[in-house]
Write a protein that binds this DNA or RNA. Structure first.
Lengths: 225, 225
DNA sequence: TGGGTAAATCTGTATGACAGGTATTGGGTG
DNA sequence: CACCCAATACCTGTCATACAGATTTACCCA
């Protein structure tokens, strides 16, 4: 993938160490010095990889004792990064359907005035960017994010951000966004977003969820004609 | 919270630096040496914090140039770590309702024979642990995980794991699990899980989703009597 | 003014060191 | 022989220093 930095290679190496063979949950993995020798790099870099592994919930470091396997990285999750962009994107949409539709419903039911202002602001910025024919992926995501925020449930945000990080990784890996926005589509995208925002404004949960589902379905169609 | 390690403090400090003041997306944050002096720690530790920030998608490091803000951490996400355990758990359940219910439906529709075997295996291990009156949180989560895996959609797993990591962090922070498992509850938990698994076995999506919703609702009740 | 080069700055990586935990071993005692 | 405790080896957390390679900035010359 992007293994330019040594720490990335070390990360992958340790993941393979865990996933590939006998290390199961609770097992101790080799000491930092051993890993450094194993991969032919310095302990500094091994530590960086371990920090990320711990941050990803795969390992857990115990001071004075060692690093331990906390959750085995699933083979399918690893395979995800090797899945072709299109099917990965489709899979992501499937989750967004259930997650964001419900988020839109809750947002409609709970939004504060301040939330509504943030959503309107994001919508306006999206409109401006869309009309200028520039890539608007960031603005699009920001609007969705503001809607998720309005649920006042941080757990929704956690799940949403895990997904978008994924999407962005896919995008970075090569999906051409600009291709999928012929001029006549821009108006449709805006109308879809406006329908969602209007439903949230009207505090109509069912309509918001429906509008979000519609919007995501249309978006998926645009990706796979 | 968990600020025992210096890198955690540095992480929070940098987040506050971005979130608290004028740093917006695209801005460069102070150099590693500056940050080290700022927090009174070594550059090594600053780097660990930056590695995690980059891993979390908040910053982006450009060799020779500096670290840049990629996504602003939302204030509510920060507040999440300071939310009391109970309401955070309830918030998580709200998301699990929509996410896992749909995962159960898809699992029922798509499961392979191998998936079914993994689910049965996880169920059996959960039963054994429950009957021995030991903490069974790990086994419980593993069963849910296997169900999510059976969707054959890695994006579901991404969202699910982001949530469970969160849940475990909450658990680690002090929720007493054993308290909430008086003997008469064990049978109920098993019946709920069996209902889900049976529906998946019968490839009945609606029943699976319903059983999962019921199970999560009961679980939430057990947490907040 | 414009352009190109040199200097300053910054991240990526390596090495060595020490403090303060944790696990283990081995010896002493009953 | 079994058990408890202390010495010891091992490990992570942290710091300081150094240098290579990339990038930005500054300056000088044309």
């Amino acid at each position: 993938m992007s293994g330019r930095r040594l720490a990335d290679q070390a990360y992958s190496g340790i993941v393979e160490l865990i996933s590939g063979q006998k290390l199961s949950v609770g097992d101790r993995l080799p000491s930092e010095v051993s890993l450094a020798e194993m991969f032919g790099i310095s302990r500094t870099i091994v530590r960086e990889a371990l920090v990320r592994l711990a941050s990803d919930g795969i390992t857990e470091a115990r001071r004075g004792a060692g690093s331990y396997v906390k959750n085995r990285p699933s083979d399918r999750l690893i395979a995800y990064t090797q899945t072709d962009n299109l099917s990965a994107t489709i899979g992501t949409y499937e989750v967004r359907f259930v997650l964001e539709a419900e988020a839109a419903r809750l947002a409609a039911m709970r939004r504060s005035a301040a939330d509504m202002a943030s959503i309107d602001d994001a919508l306006q910025k999206l409109r401006a960017t869309l009309l200028s024919s520039l890539p608007a992926h960031a603005e699009d995501m920001e609007l969705h994010r503001q809607i998720v925020l309005a649920t006042t449930n941080p757990a929704f945000l956690v799940a949403f951000e895990a997904l978008t990080e994924d999407v962005e990784q896919i995008m970075r890996a090569g999906v051409d966004i600009s291709r999928m926005r012929p001029p006549e589509v821009i108006g449709a995208m805006m109308r879809e977003h406006e329908a969602i925002v209007d439903a949230i404004r009207a505090q109509d949960g069912d309509s918001a969820a429906l509008a979000m589902r519609w919007h995501l379905a249309e978006g998926r169609k645009r990706l796979m004609p």
